[in-house]
Amino acid sequence: MAGSPGTGSRGLGSFLAAAWPVIRRRLLLALPVLLLVACGTFGLLHLAPGDAVDAMVIAGGGGDAALASELRARYGLDQPLLVQLSLYLLRLLQFDFGVSPVHNRPVLALITERLPISLLLMLTATAFAVSLGVVLGVSAAAAAGRWRDRLILAAALVIYAMPSFWVGLMLILVFAVTLGWLPVGGFETAASGLSGMARVLDIARHLILPTLALALLFVSVHLRLMRAGMLDLAGADFVRMARAKGVPRRRVLWAHLARNAVLPVIAMVGVQASTLLGGAVVIESVFSLPGLGRLAYDSVVARDLATLMGLVVVSAVIVLTVTLVVDLVMAALDPRVRLR
């Protein structure tokens, strides 16, 4: 059977069927969350002085009152608040986030153009943070109480206290300005004409420093969680059994302890998804990466509220999706999650 084309998809299908309770619980939790987030953005839009039509009129260089009231009638802005809220929610259901008066384009298009860059950065940073966090956590736990452990814990404390944008600037100072090894910013070399593998490598070179700057905070979180998990499990029966059987120390550490202690670290990736996305916003503006963060920053400066509220809703959707994916990964790795 192995290697036949159908195996993979049938395996996935049966896994999804087994994990259905996990998926259903997440989706049921996601609905009220999205509804509340949408109501929140609606409230914020109403707190702001002026409405969408004012923004359009100002962006258009002023206009007459008759046109403004006609626009208000067309967008339903002259209706009672509750009607406006339902209209707003209906539009959101159709993925209509309105039109940005600054860019004069649909907000959804602005967001989807920039989304891949932010997602890529979040992915590379998570991969780096989890791997380094796991290695350092195991290394600290293996030397618990000794100087190597203390050194790693002290480093975690300091790393946690470093503002990510400052880390980004210092990385630029060392690796881009002083050593000249890596580019200062941007997503790829402009007008380089690169394609295929060469372009991938060029993008990878541009992503190294932003990934490091974004990941460091999470390295600190993951390594502490990993270390604590390892120490918690150190006295468990299956570990003592392995030791008694004469399994080599290194193997007990990695194959028995680390494999179990990594589960809370992966769960933590889901918990930290929203912090990660928030961090990406700052890092993107340090490294001039044209992702969602840059869009958010430009929208604040231009007071482009339509785009900003679209971003709030989309980032909630991203965070919910990441949480669902992490749940599925947990279900795949740990059968206990599926049976719960």
Binding site: P32, V33, T275, G278, V281, L305, L311, S315
Partner: peptide, 21 residues
């Protein structure tokens, strides 16, 4: 559910939105 909703929106994005408003 309100707590879930606030936790789902990245704090920094929420802060940007409030500063803009």
């Amino acid at each position: 559910r309100v707590t879930d909703a606030v936790q789902t929106v990245p704090g920094f994005v929420l802060a940007l939105a409030l500063v803009a408003v």
